[in-house]
């Protein structure tokens, strides 16, 4: 996938000219973790969106350009926050290790 990062979700069907994509994978003990929840918080910490991870631990958001925080929730784990910057036409890839 041109412009994609190893292990990232396919960008087929995504019009990157319009989108500011944040995507990535949640890992536990180096294994992808399906069924975790990833929350997207805006620059003020306010909730913007949430998705469950896929069976391969992956998630994706269509954000706006700017500073965001990802918060991962999973059974038997404390929440983990990761800061990320989104830009139009780019894909911000994030690995979150619980």
């Amino acid at each position: 996938m041109c412009g994609g990062t190893e292990g990232g979700l396919s960008l087929d069907g995504v019009d990157l000219d319009k989108e500011s994509v944040i995507q990535g994978v949640v890992l536990r003990e180096e294994q992808p973790l399906g069924g975790a929840y990833v929350r997207l918080l805006d620059a003020t910490g306010e909730f913007t969106a949430e998705v469950p991870t896929s069976a391969t631990g992956q998630f994706r958001f269509f954000a706006a350009p700017g500073h965001w925080t990802l918060r991962a929730l999973a059974p038997k784990a404390d929440p983990v926050d990761r800061a990320v910057v989104a830009a139009r036409g780019e894909v911000a890839e994030v690995r979150i290790v619980l």
């Binding site: 019009d15 997207l40 949430e50 269509f62 706006a64």
Partner: peptide, 12 residues
């Protein structure tokens, strides 16, 4: 008005 939909959905 900076987004048209929740951020887990495409924006068009």
């Amino acid at each position: 008005g900076r987004l048209l939909a929740p951020a887990h959905l495409p924006q068009e």
